[in-house]
C-alpha cells in the first residue's frame, strides 16, 4: 500500500505510476516550516530515489515568500526531477505563476489545469 505522509498543510505520497505527489490542503497558508516539512516528507517517501513530482495547488490560500524561496530550491540539492503544478482557482493560478518566474525552481517546472495532462507530462520522466 502507498506510504502517505500527512503534515500540517500537505499530504505526500508516491503513486502507482511512479510519481511523487503532494496535495495542498483546503485553504492552506504555507509558511517556511510547512515547506521544510514537505521537503522532509518528499525525501522520506522517495527513499533515496528521485521522482518527478505533481504538486496540487488547487486549494491553496497563500504561500509566504520564505516558503516560495524554499521550493525554488536555489541553495539545496533538488529532491525531485521535474515539477508539474496543478492549478485551477484564480488564487492557485496567481501563485503558480510565481513559480514560473520570480520563485522558479531549479528543476523544470510547468503549470497544468488538467491532472490528466500533468500526469502524462510527468510520465515521461518516470524511470
Amino acid at each position: 500500500m502507498e506510504n502517505v505522509i500527512r503534515t500540517r498543510v500537505f499530504t505526500t505520497w508516491i503513486d502507482n505510476a511512479g510519481i511523487c505527489r503532494t496535495k495542498v490542503k483546503q485553504g492552506a497558508i504555507i509558511e517556511l516550516a510547512d515547506a521544510e516539512e514537505n521537503s522532509a516528507a518528499v525525501q522520506k517517501v522517495s527513499a533515496g530515489k528521485i521522482y518527478p513530482m505533481l504538486v496540487d495547488l488547487t486549494h491553496i490560500n497563500f504561500i509566504h515568500k520564505s516558503a516560495r524561496d524554499h521550493f525554488a530550491m536555489r541553495n539545496r540539492k533538488p529532491g525531485v526531477k521535474v515539477i508539474a503544478m496543478l492549478i485551477g482557482s484564480p488564487v492557485s493560478k496567481v501563485i503558480g505563476n510565481f513559480f514560473l518566474g520570480i520563485n522558479k525552481p531549479t528543476v523544470p517546472t510547468q503549470l497544468f489545469t488538467s491532472e490528466k495532462k500533468a500526469v502524462a507530462w510527468l510520465s515521461k520522466f518516470v524511470s
Binding site: N61, F62, I63, K65, R68, S89, P90, V91, K93, V94, I95, F98
Partner: peptide, 11 residues
Amino acid sequence: NFNALAIGINM
C-alpha cells in the same frame, strides 16, 4: 478574482 489579486499584490 479579488482574493487572487490581493494575494498576487502581497506576494
